[in-house]
């Protein structure tokens, strides 16, 4: 099977302090670490598992600035065969829609059986790239995918719904799968694979290679720290004092 994985390099913000920069439109990034978007690590693993089973190739594609090549190299070390970076610096403001449009321009010339993306990126939280890309390529898609099982011509796909329910679909290939987190165990890269990946060429495509006019759906006007909502009554004091008050509250509610 020939597979494509779309990967994004994002700042790791889940446990970090995040501040708005002087432009008011971006965050201060110099104290953050960057890594492959969490859902994309599962998308990549899903593709590698299929390649292990059926053979074929994996092409990793990332729309990003030069640093994204580090992330693509990780994908190469884990099991991708080739990698493409689309120069984000050439294309101005991006959103999920425009990202998908640029990916489509590259992918339309590649033969593929399936495309894997993360279901969303933690930086811009769009949930868009997978389904938009599928629509532009004219192939079916599924989002929030928790399982892709290929047999003969049929593909069994599970989607994760709210409330712990699974939607079981049957799809045909080629298709796009936007993968949910936690669906497999992303692997490490071995030192041998890392060495091999270090020597591989990453194809870089810029404005001159993708001479299409693509526009975003939206323009970011400003970034700001979310206003605080209804705040909890904060109980203060030593652990013992706080515990005593909390126990009192729980008792008042008739729960002890």
């Amino acid at each position: 099977m020939d597979l494509i994985v779309c990967i994004k390099r994002v700042p790791q913000t889940a446990e970090a302090e995040v501040r708005v920069d002087s432009s008011g439109k971006d965050i201060v990034k110099d104290r953050l670490t960057f890594d492959m978007n969490e859902a994309d690590t599962y998308a990549l693993e899903a593709a590698i598992l299929l390649k292990e089973k059926f053979g074929g190739t994996i092409t990793a594609i990332s729309l990003g600035v030069a640093d994204a090549e580090d992330t693509l190299r990780i994908a190469l070390a884990k099991g991708a065969d080739s990698a493409v970076r689309i120069k984000a610096e050439d294309f101005g403001e991006l959103d999920g829609f425009k990202t998908a449009a640029l990916l489509k321009e590259v992918i339309k010339d590649i033969k593929f059986d399936a495309i894997f993306t993360g279901c969303m990126a933690t930086d811009d939280s769009y949930y868009q790239v997978g389904p938009v890309l599928a629509e532009m390529l004219g192939v079916p898609h599924a989002t929030l995918v928790s399982k892709v099982e290929v047999s003969e011509e049929k593909v069994r796909v599970n989607r994760e719904l709210e409330g712990g329910l699974i939607e079981h679909l049957e799809m045909s290939l080629p298709a796009v799968f936007a993968v949910q987190t936690g669906i497999n165990e992303p692997r490490y890269a071995s030192l041998i694979a890392i060495r091999r990946a270090a020597g591989k060429e990453i194809k870089i495509l810029g404005k001159e290679d993708i001479p299409v006019e693509t526009k975003t759906n939206s323009t970011l006007e400003e970034l700001f720290v979310p206003p605080v909502g209804k705040r909890a009554e904060i109980l203060t004091g030593s652990a013992d004092e706080v515990a005593a008050r909390t126990a009192g509250i729980i008792k008042e509610k008739g729960l002890i």
Binding site: A16, E17, L32, I74, A77, Y188, A189, L191
Partner: peptide
């Protein structure tokens, strides 16, 4: 080499992140 390729335990990634972000491993 493993760290450069993100191939090390997640707990440790988080420690490295926090030290870079706020200068301590506790975040």
């Amino acid at each position: 080499i493993l760290v450069d390729f993100g191939s090390y335990p997640e707990n440790l990634k988080s420690v490295v992140q926090k030290i870079r972000n706020v200068g301590n491993p506790l975040g």
